[in-house]
């Protein structure tokens, strides 16, 4: 079993969903990491969840990067630790300089809350290894600032290094302007750093990990991480994706003051 840490900032609102999926759907040990903490509690993977950290003041994710926990997360990233940023978590990773580029307001200036299709562009990462290249995942988005931007030189570097892991596409996996709902350059929905241990994505895999919610496609991302970590740790007990679902245990209460 792997240990996941879900970071809680003031204004995070997908923290419990993410915790629930990791613990109760994927059956992994999961802890909350408070934004004021200085200790990552020995987790194998840090997840920065979605939400509106610090009210999205200044720019989305801009204030969260000054939280004490971010210092530890930077160190963790530098030492090769796995970090997944979802939605606001992605925005925070960009603002913190752990991923390159920046987010602009969606091209239609609207908050977008809808199902989208994303295509796996690179399945040779710790975050996408359980999927196939070209596979289309149906996962929802919910954001105002998801219009990914990278200056031309950076963009060609990202393409050249295969750092684009997910792109918005239509149901058939075609890249169209219509499917690129927020206007991101080159339809980028998720990208990884050069070292391959930090990934940010705007769609919410934790909202698409149970059939009752309309899609289980998001599990590909969590399954990939678990498989990768198990392989790395040499535990060798690789379970199939259809693992027996553990009994739902209650989620811990949050302790601490903002």
């Amino acid at each position: 079993m792997m240990k996941f840490g879900v970071v809680v900032f003031p204004g995070s609102n997908c923290d419990y969903d993410t915790f629930h999926v990791l613990q109760n759907v994927m059956g992994q040990e999961t802890v909350f990491l408070w934004h004021k903490d200085h200790d990552l509690q020995g987790v194998d993977c840090v997840v920065l969840p979605g939400g509106f950290s610090y009210g999205d003041y200044l720019r989305s994710g801009a204030i969260a990067r000054f939280s004490p926990i971010m210092r530890e997360i930077k160190k963790f990233a530098d030492s090769g630790g796995l970090i997944l940023g979802i939605c606001n978590g992605f925005q925070i990773l960009l603002e913190a300089g752990l991923l390159p580029g920046a987010m602009l307001r969606n091209k239609n200036l609207k908050f977008l809350c809808q199902q989208v299709n994303i295509r796996i562009e690179n399945n040779r990462t710790a975050f996408s290894g359980a999927g196939k290249k070209g596979q289309v995942l149906r996962i929802p988005i919910a954001h105002f600032d998801g219009n990914y931007y990278a200056p031309p030189e950076l963009l060609s570097e990202l393409e050249k290094n295969n750092q684009i892991v997910f792109r918005y596409c239509d149901r058939k996996g075609q890249l169209t302007e219509e499917a690129n709902v927020n206007g991101s350059v080159n339809s980028i929905a998720g990208l990884i750093n050069r070292q391959g241990n930090v990934l940010g994505m705007m769609p919410h895999p934790e909202r698409a990990s149970e059939n009752i919610l309309g899609s289980e496609d998001g599990k590909v991302i969590f399954r990939s991480l678990i498989d990768y970590l198990e392989k790395k740790k040499g535990t060798g007990k690789k379970k199939t994706v259809r693992a027996v679902r553990p009994a739902v245990s209650p989620l811990p209460p949050l302790i601490g003051t903002f």
Partner: peptide, 14 residues
Amino acid sequence: SLKESVLDPQGQTV
């Protein structure tokens, strides 16, 4: 403000 090279959809809407 946004750099000249970056599209400003809010400015365009205004």
